[in-house]
Write a protein that binds this DNA or RNA. Structure first.
Lengths: 159, 159
DNA sequence: TCTGTTTCATCAAATGTTTGATCATTTGGG
DNA sequence: CCCAAATGATCAAACATTTGATGAAACAGA
């Protein structure tokens, strides 16, 4: 990154490298999971996250699903159209608050998530083996510390 | 992740946690950069990556740009429509190979990338401060090792 | 030289994301 | 009790991404 430092003497090269590397690594992992596990089965990574959340935690309100799976409510709303159309989950108006949506897996969705998650986790395992057990724990610790520190950094979060 | 382990005894929880944490951390960083730096200026993160690559390495063929900025040629092709329309770069047919494209920043693009990168790097610095210098180096080392190991894992890569 | 294959770029259709606006419902203060 | 403000979901427009198909140019071998 010599050019950046030459033309902008104030550049923080170490911070740049950290963010760059973080992104490259994550892109690789996500691309691999998506193209070797999800797309061949007609799924997408965001769709998987939503179904997985519903499988783990059971039926819940859409707002909660959005928080758990890390997306905005608008994005979830669009995504639900596809998932509902494919018969993987059902959308119902909540009884206690008629603005809210109650989401639940259909039987088909329940069966599907089991199989897909198995394949997903096998690929995750293959990635994990690149590191020693101790290194994996350290990586997770560092990433958590990074996230925790973001509050001080006044980072912008999703609604 | 108790449910996953109960219903699927073979689940590798540690691998799952690693991938999950990696994704959560990266999402936070990207979301912050995109929403606090790029979107307010009418840019996107992928557009920034392309312009940044051109700024660092100078005019180059589109194929190279795609590799450097980590996207498929089809995705780059679509993205170029926006960037060219906004007058930030120019697309020209290469002379030696009339199939290939030669990309270069316009003067406007050159000026714009300087300012945006400065703001971008300031946010990167804020994130980096969440870790100690030694921890940053260790994080980068672990991520690089993870990427290096992917070859053994037979991971799928982008074309 | 001609033909079959590879390579570069683009297109098409489907998906998912963002921000900002809109609509309906709920809540809370006067 | 009523009306303003907050909240949940959706819509609209613009973007970016994927896979697979298509067109055009370069290459390689007979």
């Amino acid at each position: 990154m010599h050019k950046a430092e030459r033309e902008l003497p104030s550049v923080n090269a170490e911070a740049m490298r950290m963010v760059l590397t973080l992104n490259r690594a994550t892109s690789m992992v996500v691309y691999d999971l998506e193209s070797s596990v999800h797309r061949p089965r007609g799924w997408t990574w965001p769709g998987f996250r939503v179904l997985f959340a519903l499988w783990l935690a059971g039926p819940m309100e859409a707002k909660t699903t959005a928080e758990i799976s890390g997306m905005s409510r608008a994005a979830l709303s669009a995504l639900l159209n596809t998932l509902e159309r494919d018969g993987l989950l059902s959308r119902e108006r909540a009884t206690h608050d008629r603005r809210a949506l109650q989401l639940s897996l259909t039987d088909e969705g329940y069966g599907a998530i089991l199989g897909v998650f198995r394949a997903h986790n096998r690929r995750e395992s293959a990635w994990a083996e690149a590191l020693e057990p101790e290194e994996r724990r350290e990586l997770v610790r560092l990433l958590n510390k990074l996230m925790a520190g973001s509050t001080d950094a006044q980072a912008k979060f999703r609604n």
